[in-house]
Amino acid sequence: MKKNNSILLSTPYILWMVAFTLIPLGVVGYYALTDPDTGVFTWSNIRELGTYLPVFGQSIMYSLVSALICLILGYPVAYYIAHRGAVMQKILYMLVMLPMCMSFLLRTLAWVGLLQDTGIINNLLAAVGLPRLQLIRTPAAVVLGMVYNYLPYMILPLYSTIVKIDHRLIEAAEDLGCTPAETFRKVTLPLSMPGILSGLTMVFVPAVSTFYISQKLGGADTVLIGDVIERLYKQGNNANLGAALSLLLMILVFVCTGIMNRLGGDEEAVVV
């Protein structure tokens, strides 16, 4: 009886998954392996993927760098929040979430207004007699956009992991003669590893497939794989090659997150 109930309860989600994830995935696979004009089976879309490998490489680099910067910026913030009083924690948590209440597109456009050659920052610089800077259409601007947009996805999982760390373990380390630095390195950091890994994944996955940020903040050189896929569907009217690229992107994301989890697993094993 108990078992039956659980199936019944999960049925809506299973149906949802089948209808909107599994079947569409099948459609993506079908498109990737058929010819755009005739609809017959072909490997040509897959063979063409080689051309796009440098773009994949570039996308992965940008998102890895962004994920690492998010970690470096986000960890102290999460640590700080986790060590405040209960009320303060709630307020700070809300503040981290606040930017996400506004449209992601608007926030990115706001950065364009700040950074462009005729934007607010450069106009201020010019007003006080300083030379204008090349801020927008640089790799750094793209990374900035990714970090800015995805930082909450790093802070939130880190916070919820750090806040659950048993304080007695830290006291024990201190009692046994660890300096604060050693306590952090040997106790807090290993125990927050699950949060670090899920934070890295949650930043990396949306960043690697983004297209809007690179189009708005990047130059003609910063074309990411999301841009290519979008272009193939819209301008190129080549959904088949687009599907093949999406499929490869999905596989790469699985592999990358798999590697991350594997690394985490090993480290945990070492600690235990």
């Binding site: 755009p36 004009d37 051309t51 796009y52 440098p54 773009v55 003609a220 074309v223 290519v228 272009r231 193939l232 301008q235 190129g236 009217n237 080549n238």
Partner: peptide, 17 residues
């Protein structure tokens, strides 16, 4: 013809990437 259009589009894509 569609094959030329598609070819030009793919040449343009290669320029862009």
């Amino acid at each position: 013809p569609p094959e030329i259009t598609r070819h030009v589009e793919s040449l343009f894509m290669k320029v862009r990437i």
